[in-house]
């Protein structure tokens, strides 16, 4: 359905331009009016510059509701072997044979969710990977707005005067702390969904008056 985008090489960067030209909501927007896209990437390693995306999962949150109809999970063709990382995400090379082109998936992501605030658990890694991937596919990368559920959890615990232990910020432990069903299992969509649940709980804890700028502060 995005075939038109691939007709000319120049069209590819159009996607990025479209994303760049779509404004993000104002910082004063109440959080319940903002649109979020919670995503998770599984990678061949932890170094964004040289590692590759193996799979990507996402689910949008609109009006504080997770919209399962748009939940997506894609396996990505990788130029190198998944190697040892298979231990974590369970995806082996032979499974990736029917996978999608990275450019195709990034095109869907950028064209459908322009103007969305992106959310991930430990978002810095995901953000960098996305930017490198865009750079590789389109020759340029947009700026994303990212919210980090892990960072928000850390701030919350600090404010409560708690000593934050090693492991306390891992996704399964956060879910448990919030009394949410724990299904996090290094599957990109399941983890994105779990992070979305965590986000809903965190937004509620922030109260009725919370705006996006409060959220950016919390997630720094």
């Amino acid at each position: 359905m995005f075939g038109w985008l691939f007709r000319k090489n120049t069209a590819l960067s159009e996607v990025v331009n479209h994303f760049i030209n779509t404004p993000f909501p104002a910082s004063s927007t109440p959080v319940e009016q903002a649109n979020f896209l919670v995503l998770d990437l599984e990678l061949t390693g932890l170094t964004p510059r040289k590692d590759h995306i193996v799979s990507i999962g996402w689910v949008p949150v609109r009006g504080q509701e997770i919209v399962l109809a748009e939940a997506k999970h894609y396996l990505i063709n990788s130029p190198v072997s998944v190697g040892q990382s298979a231990v974590y995400h369970g995806l082996h090379d032979h499974q990736l044979k029917n996978a999608h082109d990275l450019a195709q998936i990034l095109t869907e992501l950028l064209s459908q969710y322009a103007g969305y605030i992106f959310v991930a658990h430990h978002s810095r890694l995901d953000e960098q990977c996305l930017r490198f991937a865009c750079q590789r596919c389109f020759g340029k990368a947009p700026r994303f707005r990212f919210i980090d559920t892990m960072q928000m959890e850390w701030q919350r615990l600090l404010r409560q005067g708690k000593v934050v232990k090693h492991d306390a910020l891992k996704l399964p432990n956060c879910l448990k702390r919030h009394g949410l069903p724990d299904m996090a299992n290094h599957h990109a969509l399941e983890d994105a969904y779990s992070s979305a649940l965590l986000l809903l709980s965190q937004l509620k804890l922030g109260g009725n008056t919370m705006t996006l700028s409060d959220l950016y502060l919390l997630s720094r």
Partner: peptide, 28 residues
Amino acid sequence: LSAHINVYYYQAQDSVKINTDRLLIVRT
């Protein structure tokens, strides 16, 4: 079926909007 579901999180004391023409299924 699950593709037609939206997930919402309620906090204690929240009142649920019930006349929404949707089926509410309690998860937790």
